[in-house]
Design a protein around this nucleic acid. Sequence first.
RNA 1: CGGGGCGUAGCUCAGCCUGGCAGAGCGCUUGCUUCGGGAGCAAGAGGCCGGAGGUUCGAAUCCUCUCGCCCCGACCA
Length: 478
Amino acid sequence: MARRKIAKRADDYAQWYLDVIAEGQMAEHSMVRGCMIIKPWGYGIWERIQRELDDRIKASGHENAYFPLFVPKSLLDKEAEHVEGFAPECAVVTHGGGKELEEPLFVRPTSEAIICTTYGNWVESWRDLPILINQWANVVRWEMRTRLFLRTMEFLWQEGHTAHETHDEAAAEVQTMLDVYADLAENVLAIPVIKGRKTAAERFPGAIDTYSIEALMQDGKALQAGTSHDLGQNFAKAYDISFQSRGGEMEYAWSTSWGVSTRLIGGMIMAHADDDGLVVPPLLAPLHAVIVPIYKGEEEAAALREDVDGMVTALRAAGVRVKADVRDHLRPGAKFFEWEKKGVPVRIEYGARDKAAGNVVVKRRDNGEKQIVPRGDVAGVVAALLVTIQSDLLARARARRAERSYVVDDYAEFRSRIVDGGFFHMRWCGDVSCEARVKDETKATIRCIPNEGDEDAGPCVVCGKGADGVRAVFARAY
RNA sequence: CGGGGCGUAGCUCAGCCUGGCAGAGCGCUUGCUUCGGGAGCAAGAGGCCGGAGGUUCGAAUCCUCUCGCCCCGACCA
């Protein structure tokens, strides 16, 4: 009798992803191609991500500010690699106030141009450094193909932009923020990630180095979940962030930028959701628990009301985000399915039977386990359960990733196994032609060269020449 | 930009080939009965058939043009 509205992962992963978003009331397509409407449940999750990350950004010494949406074309043009990388995917405003503009305005695809220009005005002396600023913003990139959350033409993100006196300081900043992102991914989103350096081919346009956190989704494809860029002095030179040094010389500052976006929500979906819909980690869930009262007729409903209100009060006092689903036109089964599809971590059932016994039924969304709990204990039990669920989700995602992570030294073996997805740890000589060959032949790319990995010298898996250092991670990616 | 598909009720679609009253399921509204895993019955509301032009006594249906969207490739947080 169960009406299945969500495709199964094994049958059609892409459709499953779309179904989960639709049925979980996360987002929908807008009237404009490639843009999305983020619905309250999806936006509530984004707000949780924002709060957790914003706290960490502030704690690491940064402040928030806001820079404009529009970038004059002449400004974007100043950094050659940067403009080459982004110009093709920019939206451009040519008219305003009913007239053609003298200079077209680019809608920011990222804000290096406008922010670095501003920093140039702000910085005169080494005493003005470092500048440690973050902004929460929307950006626009004219993508050919879009997917909800993973790649949309407009998306929400934060972008940090810092300027430093020395390269050492800037390089440390890049790693600090990479660590913040890894902490967010693992301890809030419950998604295990690999921190590492991008190859030249995958680098941010204009950066001297790009680092990322890379996650593995349930279909075996990789997702770049956050990036942190060492911009060297490239942008400082292009946008004139110069300062008088301690020794009295004029020097260019060293800058960085780093960002994560609403793509993280796509990652959360593909890391945890199952064939029944979303599974939202407690730290991200707008609601931790929903109480579904079960009754026949108004008299029974009234008899439960006081107890339900009491539980809500007790749960909230214990820090649980809870609400009672008292809608009278839906039967309990319909409510169960609805909250399940939204991925609420815990469901609490309370009916006449439970009242008589002094119990409630507590059910976990992540593994379906049910337990009977004395009504007076519900707040403590649920609060503890949320902690367990959060860590179980991470452990499960870790186990899944471990199952699909391979150390491979034979190119033919890699070619035959990459079709099933997963992370392939392989030696790479550093030559762009080997990297390109892998991409041509297998659609896999080097996701990163892990920061933390054992030295493992030996022949390059592609060309057989010597490869120093740690193994690179190859995968097909979103 | 290439290749494929689709525009009809809020959603999913049938009807088109072979022109003749605008349809179904789900959802929605109202009422009654229900309520521990997606309720049943009854009565309702809801449409510029993507748009423009043409053929015709008559067009959702045939013809021409146009706009938009989706899927598959090349580019990407």
